[in-house]
Every structure is written in structure tokens, then in C-alpha cells.
Amino acid sequence: MKYTEELLATMYYRMYQARFFEEALKSSSVSEKINGVSHLSIGQEATAVGACMAMNEDDKIVMSFRNHAQAIASGMEIKGMMAEVMGRESGINGGLSGSAHLSDASVNNLGTSPAPGAGYPIACGAALTQQKQKTGQAVLCFGGDGTLDEGLFGESLNLAALWKLPVIFVIENNFFSGATAIEHHFAPKSVAALAAAYGVPAVTVDGNDVIAVHSAVTKARAKAASGEGPFVVEAQTYRLCGYDTNDLQLYRSVDEQKIWQQHDPINLFTETLIQDYQMDQSVLEQLKENATRSVNDALDYAENASDPSMNDALTPVYAK
């Protein structure tokens, strides 16, 4: 596939936005405003951006709970995201959903389910709507390797395969479920082997290579949307940060982390853009600067936003 400079620039910009957004969350001034913890995905930006940018504008997206990069990649507006993470009234959901349950119907983002793997059937349902209404659209569903252990993953693959639903499951395999390494939590030989047991085709890609992810999800989307049924894309990646803002990371070696730091998706993409796509270093610098500025603007916006009024807790629970 031919990549336009505009698409490449957007991918690069969003990867940096995601990186800076989460680095901001790690800073003490912001983390003290997070009520609870926030799940970070520093180092996994290529998977989120590559996958989301491979989808059509009217496709639906269901996120995993490691979702900030996915949300930014889906086109969610970061001022509202930052304000939501800080629990502000002007947050994207008025401070009711927080970091873990960001959602934005205006960019077809259905959000994140509250339990690991619980989003898989939600994505199947959104795909069922596309199929029944013959919209030609597909659904992108993110999940981490930890959610492969949930019964819902198998149930959802089975259902999606039986009904030939237009859904692409992108598994962000960062090799850890919490603090447990994949060989200790996942018995199948591979993600693809598990998918194959349900008759669902799967590919494995370097999740830190945004072009590889984009290309794999583009092909998967074409198949799913044309009626061939679900597709699994396993993107192998790595968290270059703790599980959440409280994680001490005692369960993995510094050496292992160093190896992956050499494979940082943003650095890889910078090299690719210069070497393979002859993009100008100064253009890339500018995009990086724009991303920095957008996150700083979002921080200013959120810091200065007001808290919800106490009455907002009584937002209706029923639709009229």
C-alpha cells in the first residue's frame, strides 16, 4: 500500500501525542489528581495508532483498558481526555467515567468495558449491527494478552466466527498479564493457534512497527468487511512503563526493558520515515513539537477546569 505523507504525518503526530499524554500522567503533578490508578501503554503506541488508522471513519472501535493511545488514535480530543482523567466537569464524560472508561460516540469509539475481556462481545454486537444494517463497516476491538485467559475471548471468537461478524480483534501482546509473564498465564502455543481452534484466521506482527500493524489491520479489515468473518491480529509489543501508575515493576529485569527500549516504536518510525519515505527531519521535529504543545494545552485546559458539581453524581441512570 502507498502511504501519503499526510497519513504518515498523522500517525507520527498521534504516536507522539499518546507518548506525551501518558508521560504527563506519570508526572507527580498529574498523577496526584488521578483518582485511583491509570493504566499506561508507553511503548505500545504503534499498535494503537497503526490499527485505528487502518479503519474507516465510520467503523466502530472498542478499546482495552490500556486505552489512552487507542483513544487518541481513534481521534478522541485530548483536552477532553485529560480533563476526564483528572475527573473534571469538562472531561469527555463529565468526570463520570474517568481514564478507564473513556468513550466518545462522536468518533465512533464505544469505550472500554470494566472487566478484562468484557469488551470482546460488545465488539461482536457492534459488528452484528453493521452486518444486519448492511453498512459495510467493520469493528476494531483491542485486547491485551491477559484477556486471552478470559472465557469471553473464546466465546466471542466462536460467536463471531459462527455469524461471520465483521470484527477485527487486535491483541496487544505485551507479554505480561499484570506482573505475570505470558508463559505463566497462557497455555496455547500461540495466539494464532488459539484463534485457529475457532477457525478464525490470525497474523502476528511486530507491534512496534506502525506500518506493519497498519498493513495487517488494513488487510484484516478488508476481509472482515467483505463478509469473510472475524480476524485476529496479534501485535507483539512491550510496555516501557509500569502496569499502572503505581507499579514498581519488580517482576522483570532491567536488561529486558533495555532491549525493548532499543526497539522503541517512535524511534523506529522516525528512522523509517526518514530512510524509506524521505521525510524531512524538520517536518518530523515540527510534528513532535505540535504534539508537545497539544498535550501542554490539554494539561492547561484540564488543570484550570472546574470539578463537577455534586449534583452531577445524580446524572440519570435511565434513558427516558
Partner: peptide
């Protein structure tokens, strides 16, 4: 089949699927 669908015995997935379908325009 358009409006009457047999499901596997997967209560979690079926109810979740109904929720996802309901959010996006069906009335399951």
C-alpha cells in the same frame, strides 16, 4: 434468520453482544 438468531450456549458473549448491538442501533 434476519430477526431470529440461534445462539451457542455462551451466555456472557450473547448478552454482551446484545449490549454492543443495542449501543449501535439494534434492539435485541
Amino acid at each position: 434468520e434476519d430477526q431470529l438468531m440461534d445462539t451457542p450456549s455462551s451466555e456472557q458473549a450473547v448478552v454482551g453482544t446484545a449490549a454492543g448491538a443495542a449501543m449501535t442501533g439494534l434492539r435485541p
